[in-house]
Write a protein that binds this DNA or RNA. Structure first.
Lengths: 214, 214
DNA sequence: TAGATTGTTAATCGATTAACAATC
DNA sequence: TAGATTGTTAATCGATTAACAATC
């Protein structure tokens, strides 16, 4: 009766942030046809320490073999499953400007399980336009659309000024997650996960570093 | 002769990452016409602690007054200057796909000092197209263009497979910074600052959190 | 002045790294 | 088996927060 105690530790935020990076690198190895890799080799490719790699993985289980390293396919399968990449999420985009179009048009996202089933705007000149196989719909019809269709993820690519308003509609309709491209802090609640991507912040970080180096 | 010792501490990475957020919120206050704000009030708006706000600012100087708080215009000026937002950087975009167009077309970036002076692609069907006031140029002419024009920032919005190749051209030409949208780790050198924005990583982080919550 | 709030120090908390027993 | 490499513990390092003297 010598069963292992379950380590019930929450996954640190820093580890969560690195999971996509692990997935990217392991994917690259798969494409190259690499079969096995040690934590030392992989960590060197990634520019991190092997301690960190092993420590990070250990929050989710044991995926390697002593003396051998990791089977690349096993690792890919494990990380896909940890992130939840085998699932498909129905999503809608609000804001059919440049960024909205870029998200809708990038094949990498649909390949990872993001299925765009609607795209909305408030501009009469844009409403009705074709975007791939989708028509741009009037944002006035958004609540109705959300009622009729199962939507797990709302993507906000509107100007900052209306982003909260849209978020409120999405949250009221019960979306599970919001992927927010508007440069503003959205207020949600415990039932919705908000993931921000602040492209402008990234540019300012670059500016700061350029400025500092001079 | 009681001059203050200079605190020569390097700014922590975590602080640098927050600077753009400070700028965003202070800007918002300006737009609202707020004149003064305390660290407590501002930190509550931002969802951080007032200790963190004051500690962060203290790496750059003293911008407030005891008993009063911060003058919003003073703070905006200070943070603009810290980030280097009063400067203008000449930039080119490589990759005139959806993301390249989104970056080129977003007015917020030019307002912050990013001046796009060229956009390149390798697709004959795209080369020659107008994008705003710019013609999409053949990426074969990129080295020549970089020789003739002063370019500080190169923006990579190509597929991952060619991103390093483009980065090498940019680095050889002596750009100061690379803003990288390709989902790949670029190898540079100490003379170039590489700032990554991995949109797909952000989506995977959202997926992970959705997955965990179920 | 009295009250408010800064800037800074020191304590706490969380993340990273080094080291190694376990083991393939 | 001997060598290699994992998973984990403990030490170190960095970031955040609490607390308060200084002072507007």
């Amino acid at each position: 009766m010598d069963s292992k105690p379950i380590r019930m530790v929450t996954v640190p935020k820093a580890v969560i942030k690195r999971l996509p990076m692990y997935f990217r690198f392991i994917n690259q190895l798969i494409e190259q046809g690499t079969e096995r890799i040690s934590s030392r080799e992989l960590s060197q490719l990634m520019g991190i320490t092997s301690s960190q790699l092993r420590q990070d993985l250990s929050y989710f289980g044991e995926f390697g073999q002593q003396g051998y390293g990791y089977k690349v396919v096993t690792l890919k399968q494990a990380i896909s499953s940890i992130i939840g990449l085998e699932k498909i999420y129905n999503a809608i985009i609000v804001g059919a400007g440049n960024m909205g179009k870029a998200i809708a048009g990038y094949p990498g996202f649909s390949r990872r399980g993001l299925k765009i089933i609607g795209i909305f705007d408030n501009n009469p000149e844009i409403i009705g336009n074709k975007l791939g196989s989708l028509d741009v719909l009037d944002v006035k019809t958004l609540p109705e659309f959300l009622n009729k269709n199962p939507v797990e993820v709302g993507i906000i690519t509107t100007p900052a000024s209306v982003a909260q308003e849209i978020a409120d509609i999405l949250i009221t309709a019960g979306v599970k997650g919001i992927w927010n491209f508007a440069p503003v802090l959205l207020h949600g609640n415990k039932n919705v996960i908000i993931e921000d991507i602040h492209v402008g912040d990234s540019l300012m970080t670059l500016f700061f570093k350029l400025n500092k180096n001079k």
